[in-house]
Design a protein around this nucleic acid. Structure first.
Length: 501
RNA sequence: GCUCCAUUAGCAUAGUGGCUAGUGCAUCCGACUUUCUAUCGGAAGACAAGGGUUCGAUUCCCUUAUGGAGUACCA
């Protein structure tokens, strides 16, 4: 009997979704869709202190922008809801109690201060304080206390937590789809808190209970969870539940230096780390990235198809994706590669769509209304988009199609504007004025012919002419520009330059 | 410190017990061009180290080094 694949993305709403989180969501989504399964969003808000307003909405918006919507989640309630752990609070206590009854967990009354003291004390001696089999009988809990004492504390309302009683001297055999088999000695594990004194479960308990209740078949999450896999497996065993399969994704590392990618790296090196803007941090969307490009480069971060293909649509990714081809080692984040992807998507985007977005930018500039015409913009886009990575680059690349140069690049003027230049430009003016068939090819032919006749060099004519038309030594084929902006505008720019330079 | 995970060029990666280890980004050179950040062409560049196993190891095993994660009443 094969079960329907159900995976979940379970972020905690403590801030904006980091790009690494988006990748985790994406891999879950791809795996689910590849296998005809469901992708569930569950909000893990068991830590009330760290809750950030708006973070949940951000997560949902980010997923939608990336085009990886969830099938079930907050506001898309399926039969397994609610999908916020804070709204499932009442569910967890009985599971913690069940473990206590089975003798697999116990009450602990140690105060935070006391534990803190132990930890600091051990640290100062170069050791690590571990709450487990070797010292639990010396601490303040229902294993070390008499029944009377325990009941009195419980009745008196003394705060307590419930800890998992990690068994001694066991070798756990764990399986991870990406990493294979892992063996863990239970003696090095600590008795993790399952239930907090504020009446909320910890991540560990809530996670296992919810994954079980929501019939999750595969847990795909970041590598930072690998060390707690042992606990989770034991919890499934303790409840006598069938555990899902696990896959731990490699971490995304910073572009330079050591460690995992952080918000700071983005600020330092000037690239986004969030899909959408959040306060001062500009997102991928606002920087001008296509969601398709973001999804594409994210997919190749820690996964590859085994072929040389690097460009994938979402559909292709769904087809090709497999957890077996996910890498074991950390994936270094390369901002240049993300640009490369975006440039690719921009070059292959429909000209109409690009022109449309460009129009939005143009509207905010001081451009003559008659130039904001669709076919004109599309022609401009076709000429200049080759060098653009983002749609936002288009203005800097082609402003001269919309406004005459207000100034001329000084260095270029120095180099190109010689004593005889105004005279030559005056002649060019006359040549151009006489042309009636104003196509790029025809203008080029006539001007080049004239240069030949006059025995002038290209270097004396073309660079200054470009300077006049563009204001700088940049842009596509000059005659394409002249033809597009038209005869009248070209003549005007020449006239103006002769007068001012 | 301890536990677990990893290690192919600057970076990301493919691949194989045995021909010149493949690809992309970046780099350098060249071409085109009136210019260039574009495009095209070319070049350079790697199996972390040391031991084994083997006729033979980048590929299997061990050790070391390096990197990563975790070590909370956070997720």
């Amino acid at each position: 009997m094969s079960q329907k694949v159900r995976v979940r993305f379970a972020p905690s709403p403590t801030g904006p979704l980091h790009i690494g989180g988006v990748r985790t969501a994406l891999f879950n989504y791809l795996f689910a869709k590849k296998n005809g399964g469901d992708f569930i969003l569950r909000i893990e808000d068991t830590d009330q202190n760290r809750y950030v307003d708006g973070a949940e909405k951000y997560i949902v918006d980010a997923l939608n922008w990336c085009n990886i919507p969830f099938d079930e989640g907050p506001s898309k309630e399926g039969k397994f809801g609610p999908y916020r752990q804070s709204e499932r609070k009442h569910l967890y206590k009985k599971y913690a109690d069940e473990l206590i009854q089975k003798g697999l967990a116990y009450y602990a009354f140690d105060t935070a201060e006391k534990l803190d003291f132990h930890r600091k004390d051990h640290e100062s001696k170069g050791k690590t304080f571990i709450y487990n089999w070797h010292n639990r009988l010396k601490l303040d809990n229902s294993l070390s206390l008499s029944d009377d004492e325990i009941n009195k504390k419980l009745n008196d309302g003394v705060p307590y937590v419930i800890r998992f009683k990690t068994p001694q001297d066991q070798k756990l055999q764990l399986t991870d789809i990406i990493r294979g088999n892992i063996e863990i000695d239970t003696n090095i594990l600590d008795d993790k808190v399952l239930y907090k004194s504020d009446g909320m479960p910890t991540y560990h308990l809530a996670n296992i209970v919810d994954d079980h209740l929501m019939e999750i078949t595969h847990v795909i999450r970041g590598e930072e969870w690998l060390p707690s896999l042992a606990l989770h497996q034991q919890l499934y065993d303790a409840f006598e539940w069938q555990a899902p399969q696990f896959a731990h994704l490699p971490l995304i590392m910073k572009p330079v230096g050591k460690g995992k990618l952080s918000k700071r790296d983005g600020e330092k090196l000037g690239f986004p780390v969030f899909p959408l803007s959040w306060n001062e941090s500009v997102g991928y969307k606002e920087t001008g990235y296509f969601p398709e490009a973001v999804v594409n480069f994210l997919a190749l971060l820690g996964w590859n198809p085994g072929t040389e293909q690097e460009i994938f649509s979402l559909e292709e990714l769904i087809n090709e994706f497999s957890l077996e081809r996910v890498n074991k080692s950390g994936a270094r984040f390369d901002p240049d590669k993300t640009k490369w992807y975006n440039q690719h998507y921009l070059q292959h985007a429909d000209v109409k769509t690009v022109a449309d977005s460009f129009l939005n930018i143009l509207s905010s500039k001081e451009v003559l209304p008659q130039l904001l015409e669709t076919t004109y913009i599309e022609q401009v886009v076709t000429l200049i988009k080759e060098r653009a990575v983002f749609i936002g680059d288009l203005w800097g690349l082609g402003d001269y199609f919309f406004v005459a140069p207000q100034s001329y690049n000084e260095k270029a003027v120095k180099k190109q504007w010689k004593a005889g230049t105004p005279d030559i430009m005056q002649q060019v003016f006359e040549v151009i004025e006489s042309i009636s068939d104003f196509t790029s090819e025809n203008v080029e032919a006539i001007v080049k012919n004239w240069i030949g006749e006059k025995e002038l060099s290209f270097g004396k004519v073309m660079p200054p002419l470009r300077l006049i038309i563009v204001g700088d030594m940049k842009g596509p084929h000059l005659f394409d520009i002249i033809a597009l902006i038209g005869k009248a505008e070209s003549l005007e720019r020449i006239k103006k330059a002769i007068a001012t330079l």
